[in-house]
């Protein structure tokens, strides 16, 4: 009894009491579901029922059939290009706000983040209202006697624009938060010592803010790779991505086991991408000082 009283007083016990509830919740409702689809991915489905009949047919289908590989490749190209566009566009914007935003920088950066909260489906609807065949852009062109721009209607380009629209707030926010803790005076030192601006950027700003930038890239890459709403409404007939056939397994066809395997493959592709990015992070080069927060 006395020892229990002592235990309750210890910082470690209090740390556990405060952090364990949420951690257990995540283990049960995030990690266990992911493990469960890993298990189901080795089963098979028969007329909408999961049957515990261990096999690797689902993976053979996904990794062996050309259709699935095509969708995977398309999604990969889409995710890499959308991440690149977001990165190239968001960097100067975040840089400007962090360096020169002054007392307005909180509101300036929150304004870029705000649309994220209106939800995917409404933002895609809004985008379709601009880019679709009876969207504003096309109607304006027709009204003023121009040819419609085919490439912006129901195409992969339209999907890409929609995905940049959805996820660029993450990139701006991640780079901004990194630059917020960046000492811009380091650049002055470089200039005084004769460095050209681009060299100072490549050797100081970019490497010292690479962790934040890398987090931004991953936060855009993952939802883009898994996208299914955007390609469905903006991509047109040939615009389906990996997310669409994944979604299909849980809808009309009800092939739960194959769908689970596709989910597992999605998870591992994202994990491999995170690990590739992680390998490029050099904590010392990033100005990491050993403090955790």
């Amino acid at each position: 009894m006395v020892s229990f009283w002592k235990l309750r007083q210890s910082p470690n016990f209090r740390f556990a009491m405060l952090t364990l509830p949420g951690a257990l919740f995540l283990l049960i409702f995030l990690v266990l579901p992911l493990i469960s689809i890993l298990i189901f991915s080795f089963w098979r489905t028969e007329s909408y029922q999961l049957i515990a009949d261990w096999n690797i047919e689902n993976y053979k289908t996904i990794l062996g059939q050309k259709t699935y590989l095509t969708f995977m490749w398309r999604s990969l190209v889409m995710a890499v290009s959308v991440s690149l566009v977001c990165l190239i566009y968001a960097y100067p914007v975040a840089y400007l706000v962090a360096k020169r935003g002054g007392r307005y920088r909180l509101i300036l950066v929150l304004l870029t983040a705000a649309p994220f909260f209106t939800g995917i489906i409404l933002r895609v609807t809004a985008m379709q209202q601009i880019l679709g065949p009876i969207g504003l852009l096309n109607m304006a062109l027709q009204t003023f006697g121009f040819e419609p721009i085919q490439i912006l209607m129901y195409s992969n380009v339209a999907s890409a624009i929609g995905l940049v629209y959805l996820w660029i707030p993450f990139m701006v926010l991640a780079i901004y938060l990194s630059l917020l803790n960046f000492n811009f005076e380091l650049l002055e030192v470089a200039y005084v010592n004769g460095a050209k601006p681009w060299r100072a950027f490549l050797e100081i700003t970019w490497p010292l803010n690479w962790i934040g930038t890398a987090i931004g890239i991953v936060l855009v890459f993952i939802p883009t790779f898994a996208a299914f709403v955007t390609p469905r409404f903006l991509g047109g007939v040939n615009g389906a991505l990996y997310g669409n056939i994944l979604e299909h397994q849980f809808g009309a066809t009800g092939t739960w086991a194959l769908g689970s395997a596709m989910g597992v493959v999605l998870f591992f592709i994202c994990l491999i991408f995170i690990m590739i990015i992680w390998r490029t992070i050099n904590l010392q080069r990033s100005g990491y000082t050993g403090e955790e927060f």
Partner: peptide, 21 residues
């Protein structure tokens, strides 16, 4: 652990929860 859900695609959370629940 607390930040890990940010790196799991939404649809994956959706389908894995569906299967698990």
């Amino acid at each position: 652990l607390y930040l890990s859900p940010l790196f799991v695609a939404g649809i994956l959370i959706g389908i894995s929860s569906l299967m698990f629940h």
